[in-house]
Amino acid sequence: MKTYRKLAASLLLLTAALPVAASAHPPIAAEAAAANFEQDRADILAMAGNYRVSFNMQESTRWDPDYEVLEPKRSGGNEVVRVIEDTGRKIVLQHMLVITGDDDKSMIIKHWRQDWEYEPAKLLVYSDRNAWTWEDVPERMRTGRWSQTVYQVDDSPRYAGWGQFETQGGVRRWRSNWTWRPLARRDAVRAPVYDRYLSINRHQPSPDGWVHWQDNTKMGTKDGKLVPIVQEYVLNTYIKYDQYDVKAADDYWAATKDYWAAVRAEWDRVARAKGGIAINEKADTGTVISGRLLEMADEVQEKSLTTAKAISEAKTLIEMNTRKL
């Protein structure tokens, strides 16, 4: 606990030293917020669709003179994004990767999820390794703004931030505040000298789809202090495309949506009851229960496990593997 408090204090000091003014805009007048609300919603909803996605990752500037910068990495695939909840002030988008094997059969990988909430009072943010805690959004920064909370493949939290839609140079985008986030598996499996990112995220609609641009400062602990190691830029480009087995993704979701709705609800319940989410993670899988939660969804679709039994086991796994904060 002393180690955690010391690290938390370091985080606060580092955050205070960052150029917050660069990400925090003046408060938005209520009239302007109301005028932009429907356009904001339209831009978020427009991220749903069928896409060919490319992931472009490049480390650029090293801040630690002993660090060796990685070569740029590119990957991609076919991804389906669906609106699974829309209450007006909250929109939930589920991503699913569609992979076609050598036998022409499609495999679905439940991918990340993004929840958008209008004028939120608090967010579940990444606070330390294996821990996500509640953080208030400054009251004067709520009007007209949207939060984005990103969840991992098993619906456990990953990171959250708040920001606003703005138009600069003729391009409309949502831009986050400074956001802490845990290592992605692509980095975690290498056991790097850094162990988290400090990031700004941008989501921008385009004529061909949309882009997700990340500015990541990879941070590591040296002599008990968090220090920057290297800068990374990530550009994920979603291009409208449906020349693949889109139906396989929709069939997967139709078969498993009730199970996943219960899983989401259980993570939410635990976060409220325990003051956040504290759960151990593995470099190659995410949370220690991620593999089983995903496996049960496949069994539900295959009808080798009932939805009710899968939900019961999932609730037990989440409850037993999370701790109070």
Results as ranks from 00 to 15, higher is better:
residue 17 A to N: 14
residue 4 Y to F: 15
residue 92 V to R: 13
residue 38 E to C: 09
residue 246 V to S: 01
residue 260 W to V: 07
residue 21 A to I: 13
residue 281 E to A: 11
residue 274 K to N: 11
residue 2 K to P: 15
residue 24 A to I: 14
residue 51 Y to A: 03
residue 138 P to G: 06
residue 164 Q to H: 15
residue 49 G to A: 01
residue 41 R to Q: 03
residue 163 G to E: 03
residue 39 Q to P: 04
residue 103 D to P: 03
residue 86 D to Y: 00
residue 311 I to W: 09
residue 183 L to R: 08
residue 26 P to E: 15
residue 304 S to C: 08
residue 116 W to N: 09
residue 235 L to D: 07
residue 129 R to W: 10
residue 193 V to R: 08
residue 58 Q to L: 06
residue 294 L to K: 13
residue 118 Y to L: 09
residue 120 P to K: 01
residue 246 V to M: 03
residue 77 G to V: 00
residue 24 A to M: 13
residue 6 K to N: 15
residue 270 V to S: 02
residue 196 R to G: 00
residue 89 R to M: 00
residue 181 R to V: 06
residue 142 R to E: 09
residue 28 I to P: 00
residue 255 A to W: 07
residue 74 R to I: 08
residue 158 R to P: 01
residue 300 V to W: 04
residue 97 L to V: 09
residue 304 S to V: 12
residue 321 N to D: 00
residue 139 E to I: 10
residue 91 I to S: 01
residue 167 T to A: 06
residue 175 R to V: 13
residue 28 I to W: 05
residue 95 H to F: 04
residue 287 T to D: 09
residue 205 P to E: 06
residue 68 E to W: 05
residue 213 W to I: 14
residue 107 M to T: 11
residue 284 D to R: 15
residue 20 V to N: 15
residue 132 W to Q: 01
residue 258 D to Q: 13
residue 317 L to N: 01
residue 139 E to C: 10
residue 232 E to I: 02
